[in-house]
Amino acid sequence: MNRTVLIIGLLIVAVVVAILFMGLGKDPAHIESPLIGRPAPGFALKAVGSNETIDLTRYRGKPVVLNFWATWCVPCWDEHPVLTANAQMAGDRVQYLGVVFQDEESKIRDFLEQRGWAYPTLVDQAGKTAIAYGVGGVPETYFLDKNGVIVAKFAGPMSAEDIQKNLQKAMQ
């Protein structure tokens, strides 16, 4: 009887240690998005450099790359040319959208005029859209399929390979 009890006890300790060890192996900065597989929260935001309001539903029918960024975010400076080049390559097949939060429109316009823009950039007042998407920091990118469902999330600056890898999920 004692041996059985001892084995059960050891098993429990092993399970607890395994759970804690799994937690240690995780990157604390990486937050798994519960929105994967769910419809993307809808929004209609003002586009920088124009008086147009862009509604996300406008792009239903093609994959969307939704990039949250800000001009004060240094990694976003490195990511910007990668996104611009990919957007130019994709043409009409994929819609790229930038959403800037915690920033000023004049600074965004200056940034884009200096570094170029290939797709609409929208202003997120009071960060409400970022909060609805669960943005924890910038840059952060969400990949939407043609039905407007979030299929992938990438936290941090993306390389061309990262974009293509995640875009493939959105194009399936």
């Binding site: 929260p41 809808g42 929004f43 209609a44 935001l45 003002k46 008086n51 309001t53 509604d55 997120d124 007042q125 009071a126 409400k128 859209t129 609805a132 998407y133």
Partner: peptide, 14 residues
């Protein structure tokens, strides 16, 4: 008019 056209995700949706 522009402000009225703008729409942010609302808690009621969720």
């Amino acid at each position: 008019v522009l402000a009225l056209q703008m729409k942010v995700p609302d808690a009621e949706q969720f």
